[in-house]
Amino acid sequence: MRERPIAARAGGFPLSNDNFIDIEHPESGVCVVIPRHDVDMSRSPILRSAIKDEMGSGLSKMIVDLGDVQYMDSSGLATLVEAMRGAKNANVSLYLASMNAKVRAIFEIAKLDAFFSIVDSRDEALSA
């Protein structure tokens, strides 16, 4: 397992976005992307960059763990729609895990909850 901050690589973002995202690799071919704060217009580019960087060769499963995300707007939603499309093109299974009811509400408002594989926990996604 390895962890690394993404914000520094994204470049140009304010200091408050440092360590916004953690990346873990719990097993071979599996990547867990973990946003640590709210995902809005100011932070979605960092999440997009992180997902794009990890969607490389050898990856079979990506889990976006939203357990620390209390709030997400449509820019975050757009980022995840883009990620899902990229995952399908790369034959990667993408799971969204641990989202709270408020975050889930935006998926339902946009009628995108059926478009994603949404699971209750990271463990459920790992065993899927």
Partner: peptide, 18 residues
């Protein structure tokens, strides 16, 4: 239109829905 699943363009829909 929501049937067109693509990134972006959801803001006005969300405002009107909420």
């Amino acid at each position: 239109e929501l049937e067109d699943i693509r990134p972006g363009g959801l803001g006005v829909h969300i405002i009107r829905e909420v």
